[in-house]
Computed example of a mutant assay.
Amino acid sequence: MFRKIIHLSTRREGEIIDLTPRVVAAVRESTVREGQVHLFVQHSTAALTTIEYEPGALADLVRALSVLAPDDAEYAHNTKWGDGNGRSHVKAALVGPSLTVPVAGGELCCGTWQQIVLLELDANAGRERSVICTVTGE
């Protein structure tokens, strides 16, 4: 098993960061040829998923999440804590904190148009984020 923490800084809510090159580098560093890589973001207002990393698809994702958890809705979290990021927690819970990708021949098994991304969802961004990258296999 190989574990690496990917550290990154975000600037704003709605930012989508392509993690694919960093994950590819971690898989190569691990020397695992056949197995899987598991990613877990250690924050409740960020999420991980895959998407075609192009402006239209990214804008569509941001828009879809804003429909599911609108900025102007009332959130009990905001009432309790006063930090204004209730929607951020809801969006992160909907997308999820983890992702697993197969590894074959020492390479990620992502599709041609599929990239691994971190979604910065915190209304109070920029943040320092940590993604635990665990590679297992042979």
Score class of each variant (00 low, 15 high):
1 M>G: 12
1 M>C: 06
3 R>H: 02
4 K>D: 06
5 I>K: 00
6 I>S: 01
10 T>D: 05
12 R>W: 15
12 R>M: 10
14 G>C: 04
15 E>W: 10
19 L>K: 15
23 V>E: 02
23 V>Y: 13
26 A>N: 07
27 V>Q: 06
28 R>I: 08
30 S>C: 03
31 T>E: 15
34 E>L: 00
37 V>Y: 05
37 V>H: 10
38 H>S: 15
41 V>K: 05
42 Q>M: 02
43 H>N: 14
45 T>L: 11
45 T>H: 10
45 T>M: 07
46 A>M: 01
46 A>E: 13
48 L>K: 03
52 E>G: 05
53 Y>P: 03
53 Y>C: 06
54 E>K: 09
56 G>A: 06
57 A>Q: 08
61 L>M: 15
61 L>C: 01
67 V>H: 01
69 A>N: 03
72 D>V: 15
76 A>I: 07
77 H>R: 13
78 N>D: 15
79 T>N: 05
86 G>A: 09
87 R>A: 10
88 S>F: 10
91 K>S: 09
93 A>T: 13
99 L>V: 04
99 L>E: 02
101 V>F: 07
101 V>K: 07
103 V>Q: 09
103 V>Y: 13
104 A>F: 14
104 A>T: 13
107 E>A: 12
111 G>S: 05
111 G>E: 03
112 T>D: 00
119 L>N: 12
119 L>P: 04
120 E>L: 09
120 E>G: 08
120 E>S: 02
123 A>F: 03
127 R>M: 05
128 E>D: 10
128 E>N: 04
132 I>S: 09
133 C>V: 15
136 T>P: 01
136 T>M: 13
